[in-house]
Amino acid sequence: MLARGNRGHAVKTLQLDAIRLGFGELLGKAGADGIFGEDTEKTIEALQKWLKIEVDGIAGTQTKSSISKAKNNAGLKGTRNFNIHEFYCKGSNTILSGGMDKNLILNLETLRYELGNKPISVNSGYRTESHNKKVGGASKSQHLYGKAADIKVKGVSASKVYNQANKVFNTGGVGKYNTFTHVDTRSGRVRFTG
């Protein structure tokens, strides 16, 4: 059980999980510092309310289990700041039966946090093969597998988004375009400009 006054790696992991689910802005200036203070307690309370579990500001078994389940279901249900419908194919209004890659959405929450909690717009998420062809996507585009998103961040230049995405999506793909940034969770690091 983690509560106010605890410190260390387990607290930092809890804070990072809160960021990946969209609650980073509540952590205050300290962020994921490994110290369970007032801001972390308030963050856990907000997270518990969102998870629809008992709200006590303590990360016990139920809270940890619910956080883990929410992370595992992020590709099917989304997170606090990303509704899964934002990732539906723009041509067919569908998504893969298994949903999007959970790490794509969790990383997007981290990116949002790292960019000052500015709203991220998803221009393109999942694409069917026919829609991918229609928009001129690559034949093996990560969009086909639910592993990619083309994004814009309100009030942040595409180059700044690209630079930060380079860190957050360290082992995936990041593409720099004039008006948007491509991010994906493929295996292996790939960088490109369009």
Rank of each mutant, 00 (worst) to 15 (best):
F23W: 13
G125R: 01
I120H: 00
S92R: 01
Q48I: 13
D150W: 07
A59K: 08
R127Q: 10
D150T: 04
K77F: 14
N83Q: 14
S68A: 15
L26K: 15
T110Y: 09
V161A: 01
E109Y: 04
D39A: 10
G8E: 00
I151F: 03
L51C: 08
D150Y: 06
G24A: 13
K102Y: 09
S130T: 12
Q142L: 02
N81G: 08
D17S: 12
T128N: 04
S141G: 02
H9I: 08
G172H: 04
F87L: 07
D17N: 15
I19T: 09
L21S: 06
K52H: 13
G57N: 11
Y145N: 00
A3F: 07
F180P: 01
Y162M: 00
L51S: 08
V190M: 05
A10L: 02
A158H: 10
R4C: 06
G31N: 07
S121R: 07
K69W: 12
T61P: 14
Q164S: 01
I84Q: 10
K102S: 11
S68G: 12
E86I: 12
R112G: 03
S68E: 13
R191V: 06
L108H: 01
N123M: 05
H143I: 05
T128M: 08
D150P: 06
N178R: 09
A59F: 14
R20E: 14
Y113M: 05
G188V: 12
K77A: 12
D33R: 04
A158Y: 09
N132M: 11
V11Y: 04
A148M: 04
Y162Q: 00
S97G: 10
T171R: 00
T110V: 12
K90D: 14
H9T: 12
A32M: 12
K154W: 06
G99N: 10
Y88G: 04
L51K: 05
S92L: 12
R186H: 08
A148L: 03
I105W: 05
K160Y: 07
I44D: 10
W50P: 10
I53S: 08
A18D: 11
T63G: 03
D39L: 11
I120R: 01
S159L: 04
S66F: 09
L106H: 03
S97I: 10
R191K: 00
R189N: 06
K77T: 15
K102Q: 05
Q62D: 12
N103E: 14
G37S: 03
G98W: 09
R20G: 10
G125T: 05
Q15L: 13
T128K: 02
E38W: 13
A74Y: 14
L16V: 15
N166S: 06
S121W: 03
T63E: 03
T94K: 07
W50Q: 01
V135N: 04
T61I: 15
K152Y: 04
L96Y: 03
N170S: 12
V161F: 05
G60Q: 12
I19Y: 09
T110R: 06
T63P: 05
S124F: 02
G175C: 06
T128P: 05
S92D: 15
D33E: 13
N163F: 09
F87A: 04
S141N: 05
G137Q: 03
Q48S: 01
P119A: 00
K69Q: 14
G136P: 02
T193K: 00
S121Q: 03
I44P: 08
A59G: 10
